[in-house]
């Protein structure tokens, strides 16, 4: 195939079978796609940078947000789980490149075995990401949103650890029930009522002298500002508006809403890539088992899907840095 190109390239330029840059058509197109997809991700990450620099003095600290590890409930282990996810993805990249190599040697069962390991690695990663999303959406301590849209969190005055709303807020019985669209004249409904009203939080705060308010503003050491007892009560009474637990696209208990928006968008887009990568890998895996590539005489398809899979890993390396580390 390659010899026909070399023989008379001047006459045969438009005759097909050319391999510009010594790469096959499929591989070249995969590289083109990866460059454009990489630019899409760069756009997202650069937009994240934009939002972050815009809120430079109040951006949430990722270490304090992603501290959870499955089965180790209640322990604060920043980054351990993300590091594990990163390792799983790199490991599945390794099994992928081993599959590509086995393909070069035309070893069908070895390719199938490594493809299977790659698929399992991808599935573990997507599952971990789903767990991470669920933890983030549920939240842990709860916070108060002010009229200006800022987030006030609560800390213990001695240890400066976060204090959960249910540890100090006073729960009263109220007659306020959730409005459903079946009731009333206008067919509107409202979201789930928060567990506590702002009045109950203020009352609980007044009764617990060791609870202080922590604002989003970063001080000189890059830590969140903790207010004095008087300031805490004042800001809560003057500006406190509603209760926020967990995170969604409108508000989150960790601070600037854009933080959660970008988290969902970037890790979601990446997770979707991993998911489609797993689907592609499964298709290729079955083709390998059925002997499609044995009959074709080469395993280039494994190489192409491998390029995509490594790209997914590559993107995660950047997401890991810019979302969790920097």
């Amino acid at each position: 195939m390659s010899s026909s190109v070399n023989v008379s390239s001047s006459e045969n330029t438009w005759g097909g079978g050319n391999k510009p840059m010594n790469a096959s058509y499929g591989k070249l197109m995969m590289w083109f796609f990866l460059v454009s997809d990489g630019l899409t991700f760069s756009g997202f990450i650069a937009a994240y940078g934009f939002a972050r620099f815009k809120f430079l003095d109040s951006w949430p600290i990722a270490d304090e947000v992603f501290t959870h590890v499955p089965f180790l409930h209640g322990q604060e282990l920043p980054m351990i789980y993300v590091a594990f996810m990163t390792f799983v993805l790199i490991m599945s990249s390794v099994t992928m490149v081993l599959a590509v190599d086995a393909g070069h040697q035309m070893k069908q069962s070895k390719v199938a075995f490594y493809m299977l390991l790659t698929i399992i690695g991808g599935a573990i990663f997507v599952g971990s990401q789903a767990w991470e999303w669920a933890t983030f959406i549920n939240g842990d301590y709860g916070a108060v949103k002010t009229k200006g849209g800022n987030i006030l969190q609560f800390v213990d005055s001695h240890s400066h650890h976060r204090v959960a709303l249910h540890d100090f807020a006073h729960k009263h019985h109220t007659d306020r029930v959730q409005h459903e669209e079946t009731n009333g004249l206008w067919f509107y409904d409202e979201g789930t009522l928060p567990e506590y009203s702002i009045a109950e939080v203020i009352e609980g705060m007044e009764a617990s002298p060791n609870v202080l308010v922590r604002t989003q503003t970063l001080n000189k050491d890059g830590e969140k500002t903790i207010l004095s007892r008087d300031e805490s009560l004042n800001i809560l009474r003057a500006h406190g508006q509603s209760i926020v637990t967990g995170a969604n696209l409108y508000e989150n208990e960790y601070g600037v809403p854009l933080f959660a928006d970008f988290f969902f968008f970037i890790t979601g887009f990446h997770g979707f890539h991993v998911f489609s990568g797993v689907v592609l890998n499964i298709i290729i895996f079955f083709n390998v088992i059925l002997g499609t590539y044995e009959r074709r005489g080469h395993y280039e398809m494994v190489e192409k899907v491998g390029l995509y899979w490594h790209f997914v890993d590559l993107v995660w390396v950047f997401v890991f840095t810019f979302f969790y580390l920097v």
């Binding site: 490149v97 490594h310 790209f311 890993d313 390396v317 950047f318």
Partner: peptide, 11 residues
């Protein structure tokens, strides 16, 4: 890391 993933895993 990106360099080694691209250069060696992506060949």
């Amino acid at each position: 890391k990106a360099y080694y993933i691209t250069w060696d895993f992506m060949h």
